[in-house]
């Protein structure tokens, strides 16, 4: 599938699995997914909140869950640094299920600002007990994260290495 269709397909698959509240801060690797979110039709059973910072997106996900919604947050891995405390002192201890779609800049040679976080990202997630896996196929990633987040009532993360 061309990249942009993969991003849209990921959003569609999440909506099919009844994830219905999306927020996040864009990354160029996730362009196709954000494009799909910005063009949600009014009659689709999902909404999108464009957040100014990743911790705003994660906090909004918690508020949406209180109202009975199922939240997803999309971000670049640089944003995990911004929202780590919101994950650890809100979602993880209040036991709020969330699917994080995290683009993985710096997993190989990349621009210098991505190198440190790119190398650390799997360990960072392990250290705060957020289960994660690299997205291979959309269906597999969504069904794994849906089962894992629902069963554990915790955030889980899908790492996206290629542009979608």
């Amino acid at each position: 599938m061309p990249p942009r269709e993969t991003g849209a397909g990921l959003v569609d698959e999440l909506i099919r699995e009844r994830w219905d509240y999306f927020s996040g801060v864009p990354c160029s690797l996730l362009k196709g997914a954000f494009s799909r979110l910005e063009n949600l039709a009014a009659d689709e059973p999902a909404s999108y909140l464009p957040a100014p910072r990743e911790e705003v997106a994660v906090a909004a996900a918690a508020g949406a869950y209180l109202a009975g919604r199922n939240p997803v947050v999309l971000m670049q891995n640089s944003g995990l640094g911004y929202c780590l405390n919101t994950l650890t002192s809100l979602l993880l201890i209040y036991r709020i299920p969330l699917v994080l779609i995290i683009s993985w800049r710096g997993h190989g040679a990349d621009a210098v600002e991505h190198v440190v976080i790119g190398e650390a990202i799997p360990r960072l997630l392990d250290d705060v007990h957020i289960a994660h896996r690299v997205m291979d196929d959309v269906h597999g990633a969504v069904s794994w994260s849906t089962a894992k987040a629902t069963e554990t009532r915790r955030p889980v993360a899908i790492l996206v290495k290629e542009a979608i």
């Binding site: 509240y21 927020s23 909404s47 909140l49 957040a51 911790e55 705003v56 997106a57 906090a59 909004a60 996900a61 918690a62 508020g63 949406a64 209180l66 109202a67 009975g68 919604r69 405390n85 919101t86 650890t88 002192s89 809100l90 201890i93």
Partner: peptide
């Protein structure tokens, strides 16, 4: 609904809650 941590997060929590309920 009390936040015990996450200073600065009350407004986005409340915003999403207000929009979804």
């Amino acid at each position: 609904f009390y936040l015990v941590g996450s200073m600065g997060a009350a407004l986005p929590v409340g915003l999403a809650l207000a929009r979804c309920a």
